[in-house]
Nucleic acid binder design. Structure first.
Lengths: 181, 181
DNA sequence: ACCTGAACACCGTTCAAGT
DNA sequence: ACCTGAACACCGTTCAAGT
């Protein structure tokens, strides 16, 4: 709030005439950014449509690193992004899922998306600080006798850093959701 | 740091003789909690073993709400929990995944787990505050003409609050990871 | 070797006062 | 109707000084 105020050339309290608290300002900001999000034409195939809509959601949320902190607080949604959620649940439904399963499916996708964004942000922050990642150090210096598989995976962790981490689980997750057992 | 200090009956700066900064204290604390985690006997079937190990990880991390904030910072790992990660990647490997795919699979599972914990914590916080959830209000008051599927799902969101949100996507995700296309 | 007190540079927010 | 200044109750952390 103080930083915004000085950037506006006003006192911190001037903001509180227009907004109840920090949370309200963040919802308004989030909603404005959501409204500016492009609405790309999505594939006709419902399964591809789910995947594409998810990627649009992820990319939109990944645009600003502070959004993740807001999402982590929970109970915040941008009304002007509802069309995207509709797109996802409608496509899940079109894939043959019941309404109940589509709702659960969206929740699972949402959880995965939030997690991916948070983990990615963490990696980016470490990368910016030029500090060697502690997680990587621990994972690549395990005792091969005690933890053989982990030791064998050592070279894979560093290689994985670069690739898009969202795709890793998105396809499997959506595949799994659409495979009714 | 100040709260810990007063709880110990010492000055805030006394802590800094034993620990470099807040992060170091948190890793030590996280590692101690991880060391105390029970090591249950996991199912022999590798697929069930993955699922069980994931649930142990989730339950361990869900024990204290502050852990989520620490994880959100990124680049923190408790060395004394490596046996569980070994368990997961070894089981994925035993299911037929290559080392590279097992590493990617673990990352996907990790992302989903972090997301699930964060979303769940958010819901719990709102529940504690007795405030009616804003997300729920928005989702259950959509225009049926504009967003028909979302409107049809309205009753499902409230019902979903109670159930365990981790299970929602864990099975589908692991199923999807183990289904090589 | 271990701890303390004062201080710095931050937060979000309340409250009374100004125009 | 809109804004300001001082203040409150917090943070993590530095730095010099104490025993």
């Amino acid at each position: 709030m103080r930083r915004v105020a000085t950037e506006l050339g006003a006192s911190p309290m001037a903001i509180y005439r227009h907004v109840a608290d920090k949370d309200e300002l963040l919802v308004l900001l989030l909603d404005r950014l959501a409204a500016e999000l492009p609405r790309p034409t999505l594939p006709a195939d419902p399964r591809d449509r789910v995947l594409s809509a998810c990627r649009v959601m992820r990319d939109g949320l990944a645009q600003y690193p502070w959004i993740v902190d807001v999402l982590a607080q929970g109970d915040l949604i941008a009304p002007s992004i509802l069309w995207l959620i509709e797109e996802i649940v409608a496509s899940l439904h079109a894939c043959g899922l019941s309404h109940a399963r589509a709702a659960d499916g969206y929740r699972a996708i949402w959880q995965y998306t939030v997690g991916s964004l948070i983990v990615q942000r963490g990696l980016d922050e470490i990368g910016k600080l030029q500090r060697p990642p502690y997680v990587l150090k621990v994972l690549t210096s395990v005792d091969p006798d005690q933890l053989p598989t982990l030791a064998a995976l050592a070279p894979h962790w560093a290689a994985a850093r670069g690739r898009d981490s969202y795709e890793l689980g998105l396809r499997p997750l959506v595949d799994g959701l659409l495979t009714i057992l």
